[in-house]
């Protein structure tokens, strides 16, 4: 059922390495997670001041989408025909803890807004002007079967023409993002097996 859709690009960020279509494109510097994320941002050479106010999960997802979509011609589609379906295990717990620490002093609305996992989708949609279907799911592990079948349904039923999907996880000590751009044309069939393979070969 899935073989009429294709992975036209994929990107992973983990273990200090950014990969695009299986090729390492950047090895990060920085001694901690925020330092690493900043080094990726600087490497990309884009100017996007909103980046600085994002939490780590949103930064990670935003950077992965930036790399994923570098050659994507979104003008082929209507904004409402492009969607984003993401997943992880920890929801927004990293931001939740940072927010709750602020509550002891003065609760910070700037931190509170990131205590929802779908905010990373909102940030990607704002950046790329995507207005289609969006959803954030939580699974203990990357659920390739669910992602491949559900995104295929969205494409098959014409809800979307293109979809950015995958996994974006941020904890206090680790992170991993693996994003796929799925369209009706491309080289690699969008199957459970293929996305699982790409996910597991991503470092980390």
């Amino acid at each position: 059922m899935n073989d009429q859709y294709y992975i036209s690009a994929h990107c992973s960020i983990s273990n200090n390495i950014v990969s695009y279509n299986n090729e390492a494109v950047f090895e990060g510097t920085g001694h901690d997670i925020p330092g690493f994320l900043l080094s990726v941002y600087q490497h990309l050479g884009v100017k996007y001041p909103k980046f600085y106010k994002m939490d780590n999960l949103a930064k990670l997802g935003w950077l992965a989408a930036e790399v994923l979509l570098k050659d994507f011609d979104k003008t082929k589609y209507q904004p409402t025909d492009i969607g984003v379906v993401l997943s992880n295990a920890g929801s927004s717990l990293d931001a939740d803890k940072r927010y709750y620490d602020s509550v002891q002093d003065i609760a910070s609305p700037a931190l509170f807004v990131y205590t929802l996992p779908n905010i990373v989708i909102g940030e990607i949609c704002i950046r790329h002007h995507f207005k289609g279907e969006n959803a954030f799911y939580i699974f203990e592990r990357f659920n390739a079967e669910f992602i491949s079948s559900y995104v295929s349904v969205l494409l098959e039923t014409g809800q979307l023409q293109a979809c950015i999907c995958g996994w974006v996880e941020m904890t206090a000590t680790g992170y991993k993002a693996v994003l796929f751009l799925v369209e009706k044309e491309g080289a690699t069939p969008f199957t459970t097996e293929n996305i699982n393979k790409i996910y597991s070969t991503a470092n980390g």
């Binding site: 409402t80 609305p109 909102g122 207005k131 279907e133 969006n134």
Partner: peptide
């Protein structure tokens, strides 16, 4: 059922309601 995104602001709704 249908879902959309404003692609406008993370904590404020769309100005137009278009989405």
């Amino acid at each position: 059922g249908a879902v959309s995104n404003d692609a406008n602001h993370i904590s404020g709704p769309s100005r137009t309601g278009e989405e």
